[in-house]
């Protein structure tokens, strides 16, 4: 039960969505975009967010697309995780998604909501980081396309009013060999202690991780160093220097255990990689 009152909108165009948002801002009120709405509901129940308006993006045409077109996989931000898993044909994305929440919850949780989540995990972004996706943003000045590495994490890069419309990525990349591992506190359903996605693309290894630090990360330096390293242990020893922020230490796991698991996964990936190439 959400105890405060709010206004609920389901605009049919992006312009309307942005206009409603603007309108509330101008009245000094707090609007919020929603796509699945699950996180907003959970947080609003506990008054962790108290929006005056919910602007539900689900009804906007195009926000539901999940298709390969012009050599690109294009996924709308209101596409549910289950829909993306079954319709993207992207094996790694499917595997990653199916480790998030439960089958039923994934009928409601969306790609956009997962990427813009206030939680540190946002695991659906990992395959998108690995494939150097582009994000189409809606802004008051119209749609703009940006490299995912320039706009993610959204909380640091998106301006007020801006929202995610779509993600695009090169269709050719989706079938490349991949690696995925998620470690949880105990039940598989839990949030990750740490999860790592990797892909072999054109003699490179690409690695992205979630759960380790405040934001999911693409680890480009580590990727390079692994390629060059004679002994993988050398990379492992300095793994903390690859991280932009401290390792999370919380009730899911303490930081030393997180680090231990992460190192072990990276070692597996490296050995795997060396074996494969």
């Amino acid at each position: 039960m959400i105890s405060f009152d709010l206004q609920y909108f389901q605009p049919n165009t992006i312009e309307d969505a942005i206009n409603i948002y603007e309108q509330f801002i101008s009245e000094n009120k707090k609007p919020i975009y929603a796509s699945g709405g699950t996180e907003i509901i959970s947080r609003a129940r506990r008054n962790e967010v108290q929006p005056d308006a919910i602007i539900d993006l689900k009804n906007i045409p195009g926000f539901h697309k999940c298709e390969h077109k012009a050599g690109k996989l294009q996924i709308g931000s209101a596409v549910t995780l289950n829909h993306a898993a079954t319709h993207s044909n992207f094996p790694l994305l499917k595997t990653v998604i199916q480790s998030i929440a439960t089958q039923t919850a994934r009928n409601k949780i969306t790609i956009g909501g997962n990427l813009a989540s206030s939680l540190p995990y946002r695991e659906a972004v990992l395959p998108l980081l690995l494939t150097d996706s582009t994000i189409v943003l809606a802004t008051p000045k119209g749609a703009i396309t940006k490299n995912i590495h320039d706009v993610f994490p959204f909380n640091e890069h998106l301006k007020e009013l801006e929202l995610m419309m779509e993600v695009h990525l090169d269709s050719k990349l989706i079938k490349h060999p991949h690696f995925w591992i998620k470690k949880t506190k105990q039940s598989q359903i839990n949030y990750p202690i740490v999860s790592v996605a990797a892909m072999h693309i054109d003699n490179e290894i690409r690695i992205a991780t979630s759960g380790l630090t405040a934001n999911p990360l693409r680890m480009k330096q580590l990727e390079k160093d692994i390629l060059q390293a004679v002994e993988i242990e050398d990379c492992l020893d300095q793994i903390e220097s690859y991280l932009p922020s401290p390792i999370i230490d919380d009730m899911i796991a303490q930081s030393d255990y997180r680090l231990f698991l992460f190192k072990q996964i990276i070692k597996d990936i490296a050995i795997n990689w060396k074996g494969a190439s």
Partner: peptide, 25 residues
């Protein structure tokens, strides 16, 4: 194998929800 409350140093229960109060599935 998994059920317990986690307390912070102020005695607050950090996991009063099934989301974080883990049960065998």
């Amino acid at each position: 194998s998994r059920e317990t409350f986690v307390f912070d140093d102020q005695g607050k229960v950090l996991n009063p929800q099934f989301r974080t109060y883990d049960t065998l599935r």
